[in-house]
Amino acid sequence: MTAASRAPQDARRGTDRAARLRAALDTKAAPYAFIAPFFLLFGVFGLFPLLYTAWVSLHDWSLIGGNEGFIGLENYRVLLGDAKFWNALLNTLGIFAIAVVPQLLAALLLADGLNRIVRGRGLFQIALIIPYVTSIAAMAIVFSTLFGTEYGMVNQVLGVFGIDPVNWRGGRLSSWAAIAVMVDWRWTGYNTLIYLAAMQAVPKDLYEAAALDGASALRRFWRITVPMMRPTILFTVIISTIGQMQLFTEPAVFDTGGAMAGGTQGQYQTVMMLVFQEAFRYGDYGYGSAVSWVLFLVIVVLGLINVLLTGRIKGAS
């Protein structure tokens, strides 16, 4: 710092009231100036659209006609009776369930494995995180091809075991499974690293005490490792919930038609795909906003359930 050598003289000159005033102003104002860009930009492009979604959802609002008047909760009334909405919600929750449960269990097991080994751990960590740093749309294209009905490699491999080709896009469960595989491929390694870090922070004397008491390795894993990692597991569950409820890219690319319909029967149309379809394909902003806002509430409710459930398990044990 070049200022360092000059400063003591400045201080001794003390009478310079302008400088002191400037310093006081700096101390008072600088913090607000530093946080202002974040709060301003987030307010305009993050918070405002979110709140404005609620406002738009109370209107008959379309791409072509613009705002055509306040209609109260009409969009929500339509939504509650709309089979397409319930279908999309079911798909989103279904893909979430069959993706996240195996993903987090696999991550726990992998983290436990990494925690046991010494040699090559760093290399494994790097290899496992690579899917996380790939392009989502690009990999969705690759997986969509792997899950092709006639030419797809997954079906070819299944054929080797005498299993008939699966029409992955055709059925509800099969399309969910294909999308869940894409999601898990990307996120398992990421969660593994988070779990590994949490495992390494569990005090080792707990294990020794348990081992002295004769607890088996499996028992120690479930009775010590998992409970000690509860905050971390909750963190990953909440992050996964928020992410998965907004699932869009994988199913949208899987659906090569580009209509955001999620298959012929909408068997894998997620809520975000429905929002996109209603708002940007059909131009119905008002209804699309109602769907968005309900999705937001679903995310909040699921988050609260996560926290409450974890709290209760904690209270019980």
Partner: peptide, 30 residues
């Protein structure tokens, strides 16, 4: 830095992290 409202602003930042921004894409487009 120490300044009035610091804790409130910090909490606000944490809350914004949990906001699913995608939900606001329609008004953002408008």
């Amino acid at each position: 830095l120490r300044f009035p409202g610091r804790n409130g602003f910090t909490v606000a930042v944490v809350v914004t992290m949990a906001v699913p921004v995608q939900v606001g894409i329609i008004p953002l487009l408008v």
